[in-house]
Every structure is written in C-alpha cells, then in structure tokens.
Simulated scan of single mutants.
Amino acid sequence: MKYSIRANEIKGNEKQQGENASHLRGFATLIIGNDFKISNIAILESNEGKLFVSMPRYKSSDKDEKGENVYKDVCNPITKEFREELYDNILDAFEKAKCADKTEEVKSQEGTEMPSFSVSVTPFEREGSNIRGLARIYFEDCFIVNNVSILQGKEESLFVAMPSYRTKQVDENQKAVYQDVCYPVTKELREKLYGELISSYQEAKDKMETATQMQAQDKVVVNVVQPERETPFR
C-alpha cells in the first residue's frame, strides 16, 4: 500500500496535557495514497527509554477489571507485517526529524492511484441521538478505521461523521469545536467513500427491516375457525 509519513519532535517548551503526556516525544501523520489522512499518531517513550507508536484512541464505554474505561484504537494496522513495517517507518521518520530539527517525511513508494477500500456498516440507533449507523473502513485489507458514524440531519438527510476529538477551542456559540482524527483529503475519495458508506447503510437497514418483518410474520398464529355444520333436519 502506498503511503507517506510526516513526523515531528515535541520540544521541551511545547507542553502537552492528557494521557501519556509525560512520555510523549513526538507526533506523526499518515497519508494513505494521496487521499486519506490520519493525524494524532503519538510517539511515546517507555520507562526503559524505548520509543514506540500509539495510534489515535478513544474512550469506550467498556470497563476493565478495575472498573475504569477502556481506550480503543480509532484506527490501526490489522496485519502483523504491515504493523511492523508502518511502525518502523514512523519511528524512522521521527529519528530523522530529530536530527534535522524539522518535520520529516518518509514515503513507502511512488504512485498516484487511489487506495482501494471496503466498508462494513451496522445500523444502530440510540434514544435521543441522531446516530443511525456505525461503520468501519478497510484499506487494502491491512489498515482499519473504526468509529465512523452515519448521522441523520434535521431534514432527514444522512451524512458521514469521521472519528474526531474535542479541542480547547469554541465556536461563536461557545460550543466545543471538534477536529477530525482521520478523513479523506481529496474530493474524489470523499465522494466515493461517503457514497459507499451511505449506500451500505441503506442496504444493511433494508435487510434488517426485512428480517424483522419475517420474524414478526412467523410469530403470527392464524386461527382458522371452521364453520359448524348444520345438523340435518329430521
């Protein structure tokens, strides 16, 4: 799979907050093809002084044995081979950025082809929410993007929301501003990807509704009452 990586070092005066802040050494951005961007990839240093890669994560509703929320990857490699290749290249780009004292870019290979992908969508509704489905995107069977949402707008129209995080900024209405963690950066991929997600949602929803109707029909017991025969007059 064609991709490029941009990495930069976090300087001592660039204070960070949040989980793993004291171990944070840098950030990386992954661009799949020239079309899909993943930001907020963290480069951390362990207590033993070893660098490692942490993909963007979100706090799930699942709990661990201590009753604390479990964090899950927003996106990640799904094969051992690609994970090792990608993480090695991210750390390599980071080391080069440290030496050059600037953002460094590493490319896996040249090419302009749009990355191939597939999607899976599960209809999902929650009371009081405009979420209508949850989706995953698979790039070339080696990288997955989770936590993609299908939302319903005010005019009943459907749209796609990519995974995002809450920033410290607020808009003109003093509401929190959210920033996408990963998203298509070209019009061509955005239209193709979002169209496929909406289409897959509609198809999955239709199948679910059909299955529900068939189950309901199976439970209906039709009692056929036989008319009483008239007793012959004697």
Rank of each mutant, 00 (worst) to 15 (best):
S199E: 10
F82D: 07
E85S: 06
V70Y: 11
I38M: 09
A93E: 08
P227N: 09
T231E: 13
S54P: 01
F233V: 09
E65P: 00
Y165W: 12
F94M: 05
E156K: 13
L193G: 07
V225Q: 13
Q202D: 08
M162D: 04
S22Y: 01
I144Y: 03
D180V: 02
K168Q: 12
D64S: 04
Q217F: 10
S61R: 05
E81D: 13
K50M: 15
Y194H: 14
E209K: 07
D92E: 13
S157W: 00
K59D: 12
K154Q: 14
R229G: 11
K66R: 07
Y178K: 09
N47R: 03
P56V: 08
V145I: 14
M114F: 00
N8Y: 13
Y165N: 11
A135R: 04
E155Q: 09
S39Q: 14
D62S: 13
Y183W: 01
A216T: 08
Y165D: 03
L51T: 04
M214F: 03
G111N: 05
G195Y: 00
K15C: 00
E155F: 03
T231M: 07
Q174A: 10
M1T: 06
E230R: 13
G133K: 08
R190F: 01
I90T: 06
D218A: 15
M55L: 15
T122D: 09
E113N: 13
Y201C: 02
F82H: 11
F124I: 00
L91C: 12
E19Y: 04
Y3I: 07
Q226N: 14
A100W: 04
D88C: 05
D64P: 09
Y87M: 06
R132M: 14
E127Y: 05
V106A: 11
F82W: 14
E85D: 10
P232H: 06
S118W: 00
Q16T: 09
K80W: 06
D218T: 09
I43P: 03
V121E: 07
M162Q: 05
G128T: 01
S118I: 00
S200G: 08
E191N: 08
Y87F: 15
N20W: 10
P115H: 04
A21Y: 14
T79W: 09
K66T: 11
L158W: 02
E45Q: 14
F159A: 04
L189H: 06
Q169G: 00
E228F: 09
Y71P: 02
T212L: 15
S4W: 03
R234C: 07
Q179F: 05
M162F: 15
S129N: 07
I31D: 12
V70A: 10
S129L: 02
Q169R: 11
S129Y: 06
L91F: 11
T210R: 13
Q202S: 02
F52P: 11
F159I: 00
L91Y: 09
A216E: 15
A21M: 13
F117N: 02
K175W: 04
T231A: 08
